Simulated scan of single mutants.
Amino acid sequence: MSDSLRNKVVVVTGASSGIGRSIALESAGRGATLILLARRQEKLAEIAAEARELSGSEAFAFATDLGDADQIEASFQKIVKSVSHIDYLVNAAGFGKFASFMDSDMADAANMFQVDVLGLMYLTRLVGRVMMDQRSGQIVNFGSIAGKVPTVKSAAYSAAKAAVIQFSNVLRLELKPFGVKVMTVNPGPVYTNFFNVADQSGEYLKNVQEFVLDPDDVAWQVVHYFGSNKRELNLPLSLAAAAKLYGLFPTIGDYLSLQFASRK
């Protein structure tokens, strides 16, 4: 584990807000060179400027829609022209929408998979090849506790995050011989703009306040484990325990989820 990221290059997706922004600034505070990816160029430029002040190192901002493979490819080409190596890739971009599956719009489900799963996989494949050639690096993929513990009105989102978790598990095995590490981060609810889209009523966030995480706290823990062999980080501890218990006692877990966890 490393407290200093001086001379390290960190690529962060979803860097314009929320957890991605917090991870970018936490990394900058430890001296990292940053590559920031998100859709909003103006916001990215502001965060890049803040990162340079913190780190004394360079920060690059490349506007990228993670749902568009052509844009991902174009940004990757800019990355490899800007830096000579990549030490960490943090795939924090993603969104969700809460709705009963039978009443939901399948276009929303398709978009979720395009950004949360396929976009993540596409960029990981490009950056992963660089890390394989280096024979070093770490990929950090954001899943979710929702990918482990089912709750109502999150079928498509939970499926997307479960896909990220299992993708990461297999990728970890495939990249281990090349010295490349893979860690999955599975947070519960976090105070970010995510809920402006996912839960427009505001009721869910209000109902789960005791579990809601601060994005800066999540970022500190993620960056703390940069360079480690940790395979999975589940947050908070109460929900991490719930996820373990669900795997052991799924029938009881379904009952408890319906009674206490499905508060959307």
Rank of each mutant, 00 (worst) to 15 (best):
S2P: 02
S4R: 14
N7Y: 07
G14T: 04
A15G: 11
G18S: 10
I23Q: 10
A24E: 09
A24W: 07
L25F: 13
A28W: 12
R39Q: 14
Q41Y: 11
E46R: 13
A51M: 11
L54R: 15
L54C: 02
S55K: 14
A59Q: 05
A61R: 09
T64C: 14
D65C: 07
L66P: 08
L66Y: 11
A69K: 14
D70L: 08
Q71S: 13
I72A: 10
E73F: 10
I79K: 03
K81L: 13
S82R: 09
V83R: 07
H85P: 03
D87V: 02
L89H: 06
A92W: 04
G94H: 01
F95T: 05
G96M: 01
F98A: 10
F98V: 02
M106L: 15
D108K: 01
A109L: 04
A110F: 11
A110Y: 06
N111G: 14
L118D: 07
G119F: 05
L120V: 11
M121H: 03
T124K: 02
R125G: 09
L126T: 06
V127I: 15
D133K: 10
Q134S: 06
R135W: 04
R135I: 01
S136N: 12
Q138N: 06
Q138V: 01
I139E: 00
V140C: 03
N141Q: 08
I145S: 10
P150S: 06
T151L: 11
K153H: 15
K153Y: 11
A156K: 01
S158D: 01
A159H: 02
V164S: 02
V164R: 00
S168N: 08
V170T: 13
F178L: 04
F178K: 00
G179P: 07
T184W: 00
N186S: 15
P189S: 13
V190A: 07
T192F: 01
N193G: 12
N196C: 03
V197T: 15
A198H: 07
A198K: 06
A198S: 09
S201M: 06
E203T: 15
L205D: 02
K206E: 15
K206L: 09
E210F: 12
F211P: 05
L213H: 10
D214F: 04
P215D: 06
V218M: 13
V222E: 05
V223Y: 04
V223T: 07
H224F: 13
F226M: 07
N229L: 03
E232F: 02
E232W: 05
N234V: 14
P236Q: 12
L239F: 08
L239G: 03
A240M: 13
A240T: 11
A241C: 12
A242F: 08
A242K: 13
Y246I: 01
P250L: 12
S257F: 08
F260V: 10
R263P: 06
R263M: 11
